[in-house]
Design a protein around this nucleic acid. Structure first.
Length: 281
DNA sequence: ATGTCCAATTTAATTGGA
């Protein structure tokens, strides 16, 4: 299975480019973020014509997540349990949830397409929301893996965190001044790893950014951030055979400001697969 | 000049979000 995650920054503005990438790269499962449309506005036809099923979760022009898959999609979840909400002027515990998480089971893998809140500024209520959201995601992960430790679980998406200084090539993003690099955000990312997840791309692609701002010639200057990740449980990580960051997708006509991150999985050779014939004995 | 882009509304310039 080839699985990719991509913040497409409006699927309606980029559907041709997105489907062409998926087909050209033989992507089986594509987790998308920032579809920026309601479910009924999603351009399903180009995906279906290319052989993909699609599940989408979009409430308005903001945020929005989706998963396209060549294999059937089952057990769709809208939001993860405990996911906090947020709305302007409505910051209480019962604030409505945004369209930032969709999960599904595909080919035995539990895949989440996640769009972590941006945070906006260190003194903004959105930053508190971001940390709360990540904390709830960590609790969901820990609880899920406590119940089903051998589940092939993947959290994919735009985490809006540059975990290390090497992941920050943007001069305007400064520790102590802006979001994406603050110690609490980095601690929240590390907590996901402590909950039993591994960044399955970094060992295979040690360097490289996944996002470059449209402004200030960030891409030509290579002033980007590595903020898009695929985090996998041990059963998922054990199946990873390759990984790619498709930097070229930042080029050309009307690119997204993010590029796809891809992993290759071999799900047929799990160590506990006792269906295989014994060669000896 | 934030050397920009996207979507909605206030439909043609704003506004909000990133």
């Amino acid at each position: 299975m080839r699985l990719a995650t991509w913040n497409v920054n409006s699927i309606r503005a980029r559907v041709t480019r997105t489907v062409e990438f998926a087909v050209r790269e033989h992507i089986d499962v594509l987790a998308m973020q920032e579809i920026k449309c309601k479910n009924e506005q999603f351009p399903y036809a180009p995906f279906e014509d290319a052989g993909y099923h699609v599940v989408a979760h979009g409430l308005n022009q903001w945020n929005g997540v989706a998963i396209a898959s060549r294999e059937p999609i089952t057990d769709v979840e809208i939001g993860f349990p405990g996911m906090p909400g947020f709305a302007k002027g409505h910051e209480g515990p019962d604030a409505p949830q945004e369209a930032r998480a969709i999960g599904a089971t595909i080919g035995g893998v539990k895949v989440w397409s996640l769009y972590v809140p941006n945070g906006r500024a260190l003194d903004d209520p959105h930053y508190v929301y971001k940390l709360d959201w990540l904390s709830a995601l960590q609790e969901y992960t820990a609880s899920t893996l406590a119940q089903t430790p051998d589940l092939a679980l993947a959290l994919t998406g735009d985490f809006n965190i540059a975990p290390t200084d090497a992941d920050n090539g943007a001069p305007g993003v400064v520790v102590g001044k802006t979001t994406h690099v603050s110690p609490p955000e980095r601690a929240a990312f590390a907590a996901l790893e402590s909950a039993g997840l591994t960044d399955v791309v970094r060992p295979l692609v040690p360097t490289g950014f996944t996002y470059w701002d449209y402004k200030q010639l960030a891409f030509p200057r290579n002033e980007g951030l590595r903020i898009d990740f695929i985090l996998g449980s041990h059963a998922f990580a054990d199946a990873v055979r390759g990984a790619e960051i498709h930097r070229n997708e930042r080029k050309g006509e009307v690119p997204s400001d993010h590029v796809p991150v891809v992993v290759d999985l071999d799900l047929t050779s799990a160590e506990d697969d006792d269906d295989r014939p014994m060669i000896f004995g």
